[in-house]
Amino acid sequence: GLEHMADEEKLPPGWEKRMERSSGRVYYFNHITNASQWERPSG
């Protein structure tokens, strides 16, 4: 619901949600550090 939507907005600075086109899996990418990970970043 709306709570989940708001929660997605609160990623740490630099992080954004991305989708891997080949598999459709969602991952997280940090455009500041060029880091990427499957787990939702905390902090």
Rank of each mutant, 00 (worst) to 15 (best):
L2R: 10
V26T: 08
R25Y: 04
W38M: 06
P41S: 01
V26F: 14
S36P: 02
H31D: 04
G1Y: 11
G43N: 11
R21F: 15
F29V: 05
W15V: 00
A35S: 10
L11T: 02
Q37V: 05
E8T: 10
V26N: 04
H4Q: 13
G1V: 12
G43F: 14
R25T: 04
E9H: 08
Q37P: 00
T33E: 04
G24F: 03
G24H: 06
G24S: 05
E8K: 08
H4I: 14
E39A: 07
P41V: 01
E8F: 04
E3M: 07
A6S: 11
A35Q: 15
P13V: 08
H31G: 05
T33L: 06
W38F: 09
S23P: 01
E20L: 11
E16Y: 04
Y27S: 01
H4T: 13
E9P: 09
M19V: 15
M5W: 11
R18Y: 06
S22Q: 13
N34G: 15
T33S: 06
E9S: 08
D7V: 10
H31I: 15
R25P: 01
A6I: 11
M19Q: 09
E39V: 06
S36T: 14
V26I: 13
E16L: 06
N34D: 05
E39Q: 10
P12L: 04
S22W: 09
E8C: 15
K10M: 12
S23I: 03
R18D: 01
W38R: 05
E8Q: 09
R40M: 07
I32D: 08
E9Q: 09
G24Q: 07
E16G: 04
K10W: 14
L11K: 06
G14Y: 07
S36M: 15
E20N: 07
W15T: 00
P13S: 07
E9D: 12
T33D: 04
W15L: 00
L11Q: 03
E8H: 09
K10F: 10
K17F: 05
M5P: 12
S42P: 08
S36R: 15
P41M: 01
G1A: 13
P12A: 04
G43Q: 11
V26E: 07
G14Q: 04
Y28A: 00
A35T: 14
E9Y: 09
I32S: 06
M5L: 12
S36K: 14
K10N: 12
S36L: 11
M19G: 02
P12Q: 02
W15I: 00
N30G: 00
L11F: 03
P41H: 00
Y27W: 06
D7P: 10
E16A: 05
N30D: 03
D7H: 10
R18A: 04
R18P: 00
Y28P: 00
G24K: 06
E39D: 09
E39Y: 07
N34L: 13
K10V: 12
S23R: 03
H31A: 11
N30E: 01
G43D: 11
W38P: 04
F29H: 07
K17Q: 09
R18T: 03
R18N: 02
T33N: 06
D7F: 08
E39M: 06
K17A: 08
R25H: 04
M5K: 10
P12D: 02
E16K: 04
G1P: 11
Y28N: 00
E16F: 05
E8W: 03
P13M: 09
Y27V: 02
Y27K: 02
I32F: 11
Y28E: 00
S36H: 09
L2S: 12
T33H: 04
I32R: 07
G1T: 11
N34F: 09
K10D: 14
H31R: 14
E9G: 08
W15E: 00
M19D: 03
E20M: 11
E20G: 05
M19R: 13
G24E: 04
S23G: 05
S36F: 13
R40W: 07
R21N: 15
R40E: 04
G1L: 12
E20H: 15
M5N: 12
Q37F: 03
E3K: 09
T33K: 04
A6E: 12
G14E: 05
N30P: 00
E39S: 06
P13Y: 14
Q37A: 04
G43Y: 13
Y28V: 00
W38V: 05
V26D: 03
D7Y: 07
S36W: 15
G14C: 09
Y28K: 00
W38G: 03
E8G: 10
V26L: 07
H31F: 14
